[in-house]
Computed example of a mutant assay.
Amino acid sequence: MRKYTPKELTRFNDRTRLVLAGRDPSDSFGFVNPPIVRGSTVLYPNMSDFMQRKARFMYGTRGNPTIEALETAVNSLEGGAGCVLVPTGLMACTLPLLACLNAGDHVLIPDSVYRPTRMFCDSMLKRMGIESSYYDPLIAGDVAKLFKANTRAIFTESPGSQTFEVQDIPAIVEAAHARDLVVLMDNTWATPLYFDAHAFGVDYAIQAGTKYLAGHSDVLIGTISARTPELYKKLRETWEQLGVLVGSEDAFLTLRGSRTLRVRLAEQEKAGLEMAQWLQARSEVAAVHYPALPEDPGHKLWKRDFTGASSLFAITLKPTSTQSVAAMLDGLELFGMGASWGGYESLALPFDCSAYRTATKWNAVGPNIRFHIGLEDVEDLKADLAAGFERLRATA
């Protein structure tokens, strides 16, 4: 087997690219996987090379072969001009904002955004003299009406965090690029396999690699891909100046997890849809928020722009007490209660986003639960939830 350049990899389908990208057995002593390289200091053979910084790697903070392998793999998957890795999904959301904004600028953020991203905008960006405004995620091209003279960027997240609104990304990109604004997108839910962000004109494509990319709930990592060489240069400079680096072990585990991304997503999409339809038929459920369902308000846009759905969705229960929801969730055997998702295990998490929305109102008739469907047997998951609903009814 030989090493393939990014350009050569484009002739393969994504399943094959996921297997090949970031691998070079000739550079790894013949081993299939690149080794874990740790270290800070890089030695130069002579003074001339050192003065010219003539080396593949200059210092530990500029990367190493393990990190480069994952960067190559992610960039092949994203189809961008370049990619950087950061220690968390949250930093994947915040670093490109720092790369494209300056004091005095204004950025637009969807009201359905991941809450830690909102907190970063309301605290750190504000302290830096950068103004953030929140907009209705369903506003589409009318987002142009919110542009100010100092607007420089629009952040998107589709589907929205917790509530799963599907944004009209092509319309937003068209409006933004007409004013030379930068478009950023948190594409963690769909991954590049189910939504090709750069093909739709998104300038910075963001993934919390912690989720589906790594896939095993044992890594914290984030990825950012840039659409053009100019955008990548700004991103890379910001990354280098801040000195943010992922651990080699985390890069290795994420690269290993990425090899099975396609097959895991296919299984979890199938299970997610079956579980969503089963919950839709339950008498205790008022609504299921999942774009892959024909009845979902975002289904038409999802069908137009996406090629698949991950297994993360939410439900709104009919009015019931907090105690009954606790009885349901606390007794579950197969669903853990945790804030992450994208791993092999199923999760169930209660939430209420009404307190921190500012541009829209979340009017749920009852309590909300977010589900992530893992790789367990679907019939076992149904039985676990059915028993949970019995506890809910018994304590309502």
Rank of each mutant, 00 (worst) to 15 (best):
E68Q: 14
G63C: 07
A292V: 07
Q323T: 14
A81G: 07
I224H: 02
G209N: 11
I169P: 05
A81M: 08
K126R: 12
L279K: 09
V32W: 14
D24I: 08
P45M: 01
S158G: 04
P170S: 06
A205Y: 05
T72L: 12
A383G: 15
P87R: 00
F335Y: 14
G160T: 09
A171W: 05
D49W: 09
R53W: 11
E267D: 05
W239A: 05
A387L: 10
Y59V: 13
R15V: 13
V219W: 04
M47F: 12
L375P: 01
V263M: 09
A149I: 12
N187K: 01
R259A: 10
Q277K: 15
A178M: 09
L385A: 02
A327R: 11
L279R: 06
Y4P: 05
A176K: 08
E68S: 13
L95G: 04
N33D: 15
W189P: 00
A314C: 12
D330S: 13
R152C: 05
C121T: 11
N187T: 03
L385Y: 10
L95W: 07
P159V: 08
K7C: 00
I221T: 09
Y134I: 09
W189G: 00
A214Y: 04
R236D: 12
F313M: 05
L146K: 14
A190C: 14
D105Y: 10
T238K: 11
C83K: 00
G141P: 02
L138N: 13
S258Y: 12
D352P: 07
V107C: 02
T117Q: 04
R11G: 00
W239I: 00
S161E: 05
L317D: 02
I224E: 02
S132Q: 05
